[in-house]
Design a protein around this nucleic acid. Structure first.
Lengths: 140, 140
DNA sequence: CTTGGTGCAAATGATTTGCAAGCCT
DNA sequence: AGGCTTGCAAATCATTTGCACCAAG
């Protein structure tokens, strides 16, 4: 999952295709977010990105996440009481579950939940823009 | 839906049964929240409650919501970008949808969504504690 | 060049908290 | 009486923004 090239052209291209300017900061942030398998907060992302590129500021991480979210490249996970977390927009849709004991974020594979939501919303005359669902659960 | 008695003993009792102290502030806040059919934010709640009892402070509304949530008497709806909203814990379960145009909060009747979540979570070895699901959607 | 991006620090907005006084049980 | 609650104001936390400078296209 880890690319050999730091800041490889793949990420730059992804940005360019979305019609966004490619800055070194954006490339670094996307690199870090892409190669991480947990769901980092802005603060996490900031710290990790800094090890790769120390010109990045927190403000830029916030701004970048916002831009990427609007471009549909990343998904924001709104938490109940903790700062938001982010993931690259998944190709295989899934939902999330927070382990209330550990705080871990577990991915729920499968697309059933959002399909059902879409169906139910359309019965009310709506089309889903996004659904920010976080399930709090405890190990059995 | 609107009770004749302001601050009726029904709400005081509801608090007492939950093992909570009954203060005039709590009674007022619960009265307002119970008799409202939208999903007020703390600020909304504070303003409305003030018309009934001007000794209430915002801090107390926050503290009361927190206490009531822990007692399982109210449900907190975590929004994406706006302050949290609250509703009395519904007997008939339902989910929520935010109209991204108007900001309106629409209730999605039915229990299918949370049933599916529960089923899917249990496949991962979890039992749901709570799920705060808010769907952002746009009118068709 | 020109527009948009960035760092820094200050500003904002929501929610929390320390403290002294007051009320519920 | 004694501990939980409250109001007030100050504090915290996450996120946003103004501004002067810099860089991508």
């Amino acid at each position: 999952m880890v690319s050999a090239l730091k800041n490889g052209p793949d990420y730059r291209q992804m940005l360019r295709e979305a019609g966004l300017r490619v800055t070194p900061q954006r490339a670094s942030i996307v690199t870090i977010l892409s190669e991480t398998d947990d769901h980092p907060s802005v603060e996490d992302l900031y710290e990790k990105t800094r090890t790769l590129d120390d010109t990045v500021s927190v403000a830029t991480v916030y701004r970048t996440m916002s831009v990427l979210e609007n471009a549909g490249l990343v998904r924001k996970l709104v938490m109940d009481d903790a700062p938001a977390r982010y993931e690259m927009m998944p190709q295989t849709d899934h939902d999330h579950l927070v382990d209330v004991e550990s705080g871990d974020l577990v991915e729920i594979p499968g697309t059933e939940i959002s399909e059902l939501m879409g169906r139910v919303a359309s019965e009310l005359g709506y089309r889903i823009v996004s659904h920010h669902t976080v399930i709090r659960a405890r190990k059995v």
